[in-house]
Design a protein around this nucleic acid. Structure first.
Lengths: 219, 219
DNA sequence: GCGAAACGCGAGCGATCTCTCGTGTTTGCC
DNA sequence: GGCAAACACGAGAGATCGCTCGCGTTTCGC
């Protein structure tokens, strides 16, 4: 298990690891401004201050650069969202739960703008699409579980649809948040929270009404 | 005014007009599945069943194909949205107004899936970006006017932000609507309406409360 | 029916992009 | 110090794409 941490890769020196990090950072910048397809490997190498040959010393092809970059971002995203979602207590008010979730999620996206650019472009390589779909499915499952915790007994199809809506609405809000700065950005974060709260609140009160009805009916 | 309806274009025969329509339809298909940048002009010509040379008989370059296609779609979109938004009466219930607007907008997008693909890709040509931005600004202005009609006296910055949110939320919902079919699609349309209604309703009641307060204060 | 112009073809030019290769340099280990 | 391996270079091979050009075909006005 400890031998060869990567599949059939040459033994890396510290210098190589630094180059890889340097190349990935350059790739993030280039992808962010140009998009995946339109970005050339020569441009990435130039941005990193190395020759095209050096780039291919560490990555077999262009797709592998995006894959590695995406893998690292997805891994960080999974950790961030996992921690944030697991920390939610269904007995707390909905407003508070959504507030902290949106704050943590937006903080991550603001720190890694390339994540949004890479994952939502129409021209990303197939492998990354699969991994992003997996992340999205994972996230969807967690949100579904959370919604089910707030609304126990709701039909599965409705829970799934609501979870899809929540993620979609968050993405739309995030786009607006990322395209503004300073106090205006904060205002959009506030509005995004309002959207989610107002969309979900009625479901909660509706559920409680029917639950009360059931308990009074069966004493 | 009646002479040369296009700038310095050769006199078109009926056959040429048919070829143009045929090429634009082929381009719509190819753009829809491959995206703009990744689509090759040879692929478009092949899809249309003509030679690359024939394609360049009618379009000076690849960008012009996307421009012409985008222009026609944007024109149709402007007409559709213009009619729909102008027909809204601020005295009707919010629920009804949003219901008809969402229905009309989604109907258009379902009929022209390439519109969504062309306008929201990160790799579209500059000219189209400008026109899409113009369309978006136009749409934003109309939505702002509508919101201002429902909420007279609200601060301009808030109205603008709310309009941005509405368009963004609609876009997010549309994506979910387009990715489903049949009854599930209908369910997402219903939920999209709910999102918008629940987001906007509190603004309305809040405004009315302050308006009542003002009127009682100044008899 | 005849001439001009619009239409149609497809090989291929030039530019660009990904990726390779031969060679030279630096690093880790004895 | 010396050797093997990792690192670095950059010219260019090979492939693709946008677009052109020369020539043959169809259509229109007269």
């Amino acid at each position: 298990m400890s031998v060869d941490q990567e599949k059939t890769s040459p033994r890396r020196q510290a210098r190589g690891e630094r180059r890889i990090a340097q190349l990935l950072e350059a790739a993030a910048n280039v992808f962010c401004t140009t998009g995946y397809t339109a970005s050339s490997t020569n441009a990435i190498a130039r941005e990193a201050g190395v020759s095209p040959g050096t780039l291919y010393q560490f990555f077999p092809n262009k797709e592998a650069i995006a894959i590695e970059l995406g893998d690292r971002l997805i891994h960080q995203m999974r950790e961030t969202t996992g921690e944030a979602l697991a920390a939610v207590d269904p007995s707390t008010p909905l407003e508070e739960a959504i507030g902290t979730l949106v704050d943590r999620f937006t903080a991550f996206s603001c720190q890694h703008p390339v994540f949004f650019a890479l994952m939502h472009g129409p021209d990303i390589p197939g492998r990354l699409t699969e991994e992003h779909d997996a992340l999205h499915a994972h996230l969807l499952g967690q949100v579904e579980a959370l919604i089910a915790a707030f609304l126990p007994g709701a039909p599965a199809a409705d829970v799934t649809r609501t979870a899809h809506l929540c993620l979609g609405l968050y993405k739309a809000g995030l786009e607006l948040v990322l395209s503004h700065e300073g106090s205006e950005r904060d205002a959009y974060v506030r509005e995004l929270k309002n959207v989610l709260i107002r969309y979900l609140e009625p479901l909660l009160t509706e559920y409680r009404a029917t639950a009360d009805l059931t308990t009074t009916r069966t004493p």
